[in-house]
Amino acid sequence: MSWRPGLLLLALLLFAFGFAIRAGHDQLALKHPVLPINFEHSNHGSVNRVVCHHDFADKSSAASATGNRTCVLCHKETPALALNIERDFHRLCVSCHLERLQGFHESGPIRSYKACHSLAAAVNRVD
């Protein structure tokens, strides 16, 4: 049974490696700066306000550590939300745009970094 200590060591090393990766990922995700976002309120007049401003509907005391209530900054400054900020905002935007596109309606971009995040297109117009 000489292979058992080796296998145990390998399992421990893999666990430590996974833990380090997870910690590194979380740290980098939290430090990652917010990308500029090309979002125009006037284009989204047909969307129910509480779809995005959910804190008004769910009566949550949504405010970041610095008391910020703007959508991106509140998510960015709340550690539990900041880890999934990309996933959550992409889902919010893409699901709606995709639904419109599949219904043959005019729609915003579904997968376009240039259209959504380029500095030229956006001067951080998120409210």
Partner: peptide, 18 residues
């Protein structure tokens, strides 16, 4: 096509990209 995708090459990117 989308140079900003380089942003997704780090360890801090969403897990499916990692």
């Amino acid at each position: 096509d989308e140079p900003l995708v380089a942003d997704q090459l780090s360890l801090g990117a969403p897990w499916p990209m990692v």
